[in-house]
Nucleic acid binder design. Sequence first.
DNA 1: CAAATATAATAGTATTACTATCATATTATA
DNA 2: TATAATATGATAGTAATACTATTATATTTG
Lengths: 225, 225
Amino acid sequence: MERLFHSVRITINDKLYVKDPESSNLGKRIVEESILMINDIGFESFTFKKLGQKIGSNESSIYRYFENKHKLLLYLASWYWGWLEYQLVFATNSIPNANTKLERAIEIMTQATEIDLAFTHINEILLNKIVINEYSKSYLTKEVDQENKEGYFVIYKRLVNRMSLMINEVNPDYPYSSSLASTIIEGALHQHFLMDHFSSLTSCNKKTTPTEYFKHLVFNTLNIK
Amino acid sequence: MERLFHSVRITINDKLYVKDPESSNLGKRIVEESILMINDIGFESFTFKKLGQKIGSNESSIYRYFENKHKLLLYLASWYWGWLEYQLVFATNSIPNANTKLERAIEIMTQATEIDLAFTHINEILLNKIVINEYSKSYLTKEVDQENKEGYFVIYKRLVNRMSLMINEVNPDYPYSSSLASTIIEGALHQHFLMDHFSSLTSCNKKTTPTEYFKHLVFNTLNIK
DNA sequence: CAAATATAATAGTATTACTATCATATTATA
DNA sequence: TATAATATGATAGTAATACTATTATATTTG
């Protein structure tokens, strides 16, 4: 299975980069090391100048790949959601039973990424942490409507919609499938954040996982016992 | 009732300001106009220099009230959550029935702020919008643990805990009350954001409110019909 | 009215987020 | 293999940001 993942390529909106980072060694190093660095010092403190120093390259060279760090974040996030989408589709498409399928989907969407499937230069564990800590900043902006029109969030939207459809399959009469889908995906990120920084605001911990919480939430809400 | 609200004063951690903005006319203008301005141009573009120009004051004078715009955001958010907490307690404390009480609590936490109760210089409608669009940025930082220790998030935490207790009153056996409480509060902000910018990711709209969605979610999850 | 305090004005600094230009590698192709 | 094309690196420069420091001028208070 790992081998299979190796050969998958996640297609990302080409407006998010100036030059495709997958097309060169430097590009891959930019992506690889930016993940480590954003995870390390946080998105606010992260700059192209610092990244250049770290990878022994030049600030101006990084600008030839990404217009600015905001677009780099959107690129990384798209990659992450694309990767999750792939896992979701791969793991659920052969499941005939709607309940079992939704259950598996919730697992995939709410689990902490624990295994690095070694997608060459991308560390999925750290990328998952970046998404938990920084993803909101990519859309909580004044430019969100314009950027949404440009298609910067398509993968994320497709993912929420897939979840929504699976919810509908389980209970076609449930009237809030889109909201429930977005609540699971965004809420899972939030619960993971709370586990790390505000433990009194979550019931989740090492024993009780967000997955358990969301499964209970969803299946009770849908009136499936 | 409006008159009553007038006399309420929300107590905010005094580490969040250098000089209490409630203590002078300039301080109040800073708070008042910063709300308008952040709402208008967004937190990223907002600067103390611009604010000074708008209120006919000087950048350096604003720094005598707030160390930086991050602390100003924390101050505004604390004020907002304190104000919501007041409304929550006021509206629910006399309700004896646990279900009715939780129902009323969900209404208060998930409704869009529509009426400006004219808390003198603070526009609650705009402040609610700021919280929807900017609040996450106040805690998605590398300094969150330190700032949490300093008590910058106490009001928010108290509010989530109040919700959690009300959930427990309805169903003492429900094992995820803290997570459900944080899901309602954070999730409500998120659903409002989606209504404004990603309508395909939410089932909520003018007719179907987030309040309706969350009531259904909570009472079904708690197995109360 | 003097003293204390608050506010305003101005200047200055380090950093950020770029853009532009030119030099030098590396790679492709004729 | 020479040359052209392209990629990368080095350096410089700019406007804005996020402050700090100092001094001047109001305003308030005792």
